[in-house]
Amino acid sequence: MFKAVVIDADTLIPKIMPQAIKNVEILEGDGGVRTVKIIHFGDGTQYKSAKHRVDVIDIENLTHSYTIVEGDVLAGVFESITYHVKIVPTEDGGCICKNRSIYHTKGNVEITEEKIKEGKEKAMQMFKAVEAYL
């Protein structure tokens, strides 16, 4: 799951969810830490693109962190959004995916529970799509 969701995500997600992500373009780096990429969203979303910076890829500990630093997904409300993903293997051969999102807002903007729930649901859809594909 880690390989699919992190290592191969730039090519795999557009293949299995083209309505969500059209393609990924690396602007700087080799795919590792500090790589900067543009995510071009598919026609099934309200967004056009987002610029991501890879903060951590730790294959041994199955962790990945990245920050959205630009794009219409920030909606003029956020300075950035940071995501921390950790895959935890389970005894039955499966895994648990833990995802933490940190929203850095502009000024004193408050984020509603509804918006947070919406983001969680989109992340869950992606993980379920990858799981079904695998």
Rank of each mutant, 00 (worst) to 15 (best):
A9C: 04
I13D: 01
K15D: 12
K15E: 15
I16M: 08
I16D: 08
A20N: 06
I21N: 05
E25V: 12
E28F: 05
V33K: 11
V33D: 07
V36A: 00
K37S: 12
I39C: 01
G42Q: 08
G42N: 09
T45M: 03
A50V: 00
A50F: 00
R53M: 07
V54R: 02
V54L: 02
D55N: 13
D55T: 10
D55S: 02
D55Y: 04
V56N: 05
V56I: 15
I57D: 01
I57Q: 02
D58G: 10
E60V: 13
N61L: 07
L62Y: 07
H64A: 03
Y66S: 09
T67S: 15
V69G: 01
V69H: 04
V69A: 01
E70I: 09
L74K: 05
A75L: 14
G76F: 09
V77H: 13
E79F: 02
S80H: 09
S80M: 06
H84S: 08
H84Y: 10
K86T: 12
K86Q: 15
I87R: 06
V88P: 04
V88Q: 11
T90L: 08
E91Q: 12
E91M: 05
D92I: 03
G93M: 03
G94W: 00
G94Y: 00
G94V: 01
C95F: 09
I96P: 02
I96T: 13
I96N: 11
C97E: 00
C97A: 10
N99G: 04
R100F: 01
R100C: 08
S101Q: 10
S101W: 00
Y103H: 13
H104F: 10
T105M: 10
T105W: 10
K106R: 15
K106V: 15
N108K: 13
E110L: 10
E110C: 04
E113M: 05
K115P: 02
K115A: 14
K115M: 11
I116K: 15
